[in-house]
Computed example of a mutant assay.
Amino acid sequence: MHFPPLLHLRPHGAAADEEVAVEVPVALTVNGISQAVMLATPSDLEDFAVGFGLSEGWFTSRQELLDIEALPQADGIELALTVTAACEQRLKSRRRTLAGRTGCGLCGVESLAELGSRRPAVVTAPALQPGALDRALAALPPAQPLNARCGGLHGAAWCSSSGELLLAREDIGRHNALDKLTGALARQGADPRGGFVLMSSRASFELVHKTAMAGAGLLACMSAPSSLAIATARDLGVQLWAFVREGRATRYA
């Protein structure tokens, strides 16, 4: 079964169809063992698998991931990941099942103790050139073709220190969009340390954590930050900007 990223539906009482974002269960398995089920937009799913696996610590490098296969199911999609034997052994020691939501707060954690153990290395923020955030912000809408059609998708973009938008991904969930972006960077062998992440959403703890796990040192978000996002950014050395809008940006960490 094929799942398109957008669906044509006619609202009640309307004269014409509209395009709406598709949200489907995406099950991730590693060497045949179920690890997580997320709700996501069915686009760039190989990028999603790589980014989610790296942010969750399922594997520590792209080289440990041997294969990805997308398997359509009756009510969703299975992303079957094949990893090395050493990686599988590490996973068995911390296996748990995750039920994910698009608006979740702590997507990969089943206890506060585990949250504390998933600490990425301290990162270094790039030196932003004047006007970089404004240039990146202006480039984001054209880089979201699906959102332009339905208005329901978050965007995650990778930008140079001068504000040039180099890569973008979309998803109905902001965390998924960032996983897709970091997965795409990993698959391309790009070094995330020289630029920054721009998100169309608010700044949450998990976005800060995923940014640091990817090795990036700066996160800029269009909407407000949470207190835990600010504290985490300061703790990990991530430079955090929020309320990034035309002519405005506030630095919180």
Results as ranks from 00 to 15, higher is better:
T84Q: 14
A125Y: 09
G105M: 07
R193C: 03
V30E: 08
P72A: 06
S55V: 02
P192T: 06
D44T: 10
T60Y: 15
S161D: 05
D235N: 08
R118L: 07
L91S: 03
V109T: 00
G131P: 13
L81P: 04
W241V: 04
G116W: 14
R202V: 02
L167M: 11
S160N: 11
I33V: 12
M213D: 05
E19G: 00
A27Q: 09
L45I: 00
C104R: 13
T232R: 15
R94Q: 06
L166F: 14
L218Y: 13
A86V: 08
A127T: 04
P126S: 04
R101C: 10
S226R: 08
S162K: 12
G151K: 10
A139M: 09
D17M: 09
R119F: 05
T84L: 03
A74D: 05
S200I: 01
L133Y: 03
C104L: 13
A156E: 04
E69A: 03
L45S: 02
T250V: 06
N31M: 02
R62M: 02
M222D: 03
E88I: 06
A184Q: 11
T97Y: 15
E246Q: 08
K180L: 07
E164K: 14
V37D: 14
L219D: 00
S55F: 08
G173D: 05
A156W: 01
T232A: 13
Q144N: 12
G247Y: 06
E64G: 02
A139V: 03
A242Y: 05
G195A: 06
R187K: 03
L91Q: 07
T102C: 15
D191F: 12
G183R: 14
A143R: 11
V30N: 09
V50S: 08
F196V: 00
R248W: 06
S227G: 12
L228K: 15
P126M: 06
R119N: 04
S223M: 09
L236R: 02
L165H: 12
L106M: 11
W158I: 01
P145M: 03
C107D: 07
R234W: 10
P145F: 07
W241C: 00
L45G: 05
A49D: 01
P25Y: 10
E18D: 12
L140N: 10
V26M: 09
V22G: 09
E64N: 11
T29W: 14
S162N: 13
T182V: 01
Q188H: 12
L106D: 11
A249W: 11
E246A: 04
R202Q: 08
P145W: 15
L98K: 14
T60M: 04
A139E: 12
T60L: 09
L7V: 04
K92H: 09
S204G: 10
V109A: 12
R95A: 07
G32M: 05
L185S: 11
T124I: 00
T97N: 15
S34V: 01
A85C: 06
R135C: 05
S223N: 13
